[in-house]
Write a protein that binds this DNA or RNA. Structure first.
Lengths: 185, 185
DNA sequence: CTTCAGGGAGAACGATCGGTCTTTCTGCGG
DNA sequence: CCGCAGAAAGACCGATCGTTCTCCCTGAAG
């Protein structure tokens, strides 16, 4: 399947996102990437010096999209609704046909070294999301925004994995209710 | 490092558990396994027809140990304390020096096919744990034991991943408090 | 004493890994 | 029209993948 992206670099990134997420990062070789992206090996290594660079780019792009979705979900809303809707973005992610858990948690499982570049992208994304939750919790007057944000992160991580391994519909409902119960009316 | 286990099969299993968990399953080759277990390739394949069989055995053994720990933690206790202590087993798991998240979630990230034998071991373990939580919740008179158990599973999954990627101490405290708040006094 | 299973040692299999290379072609700015 | 960057095509590198094989040795059962 040749992705519709015009530029080879974008085709590579789109193909990498699809294959890495669907099959795992170590499980997808360079040959698969270049053949499905309709790109040659030379072109691959011209844009991404190593495979790990492509992995980092894949996660960075994923983070960018999620930040946009979450920011759009909470923009211009009262704090409580903004937080609920931001968490709903997480729940909605489990709806997709090809949902296979959290890209960042899956990647972390394959990159054990905490100092690896890929892990830093993961760390960045998690800190950003935690910051969003704490900010929303503080804005709605939660007495302990830090604690609330940490619980919400636990629920997020759990929902994204349970959404793959358990019944996604139930996980979504459970997440929504847990978030609602956690916040003061 | 040659494991102390006497029988080759046990040495292989112990070595596999250590390496698979620490470095990821696809990242550890048969050569590493046999050399660190001080076993030959022939012996490897005599006991485990394929590498996937060893992976399944590793997760099955891990499940066995966790079941023993959780059952011990809740045995002969009043329902609420039993549930809290069962969940504390999860939190305590994050204490280890070499803690690297949940063996089952990590493995699921590397085995995308839901029909794979490895995924069935994972599914079994998750269903068992959910059953334990629901049973405890029902015993302590929770009005909706199913919902409570599902929330607890979310917290479990989140804690096991946050315990690796975030501050383990804070994750532990957050988990403990979230569990306490979830249950009726 | 004989038998034979189980383990040790290591060569070898085809396939694939991540990565480098040369050559040819195409399209666009000067 | 020229020049040149970027992409296509594909051979090629050493290393490692999971797996199979032969050969020899030991130790316990009959």
């Amino acid at each position: 399947m040749t992705t519709a992206e015009p530029h080879p670099k974008d085709r590579l990134l789109a193909t990498a996102a699809r294959l890495f997420y669907a099959e795992g990062i170590h499980a997808v070789g360079v040959e698969r990437l270049v053949s499905e992206a309709a790109v040659t090996r030379a072109t691959f290594y011209r844009h991404y010096p190593t495979k790990d660079d492509l992995v980092a780019a894949y996660l960075a792009e994923t983070s960018r999209q999620i930040r946009a979705a979450v920011d759009a979900a909470r923009a211009g809303k009262p704090p409580r609704q903004g937080l609920v809707d931001a968490m709903a973005v997480v729940g909605d992610a489990t709806r997709g046909e090809d949902f296979r858990g959290c890209q960042f948690l899956n990647a972390a499982a394959e990159f054990p070294d905490p100092g690896h570049r890929v892990r830093q992208v993961i760390e960045d994304h998690r800190q950003w999301f935690f910051g969003v939750l704490r900010e929303q919790a503080a804005a709605l007057g939660h007495p302990e925004p830090d604690h609330a944000a940490r619980v919400l992160v636990l629920l997020r991580d759990g929902a994204l994995h349970g959404g793959e391994l358990d019944d996604p519909g139930k996980v979504r409902a459970t997440l929504q209710r847990a978030v609602d119960d956690l916040l003061p009316a």
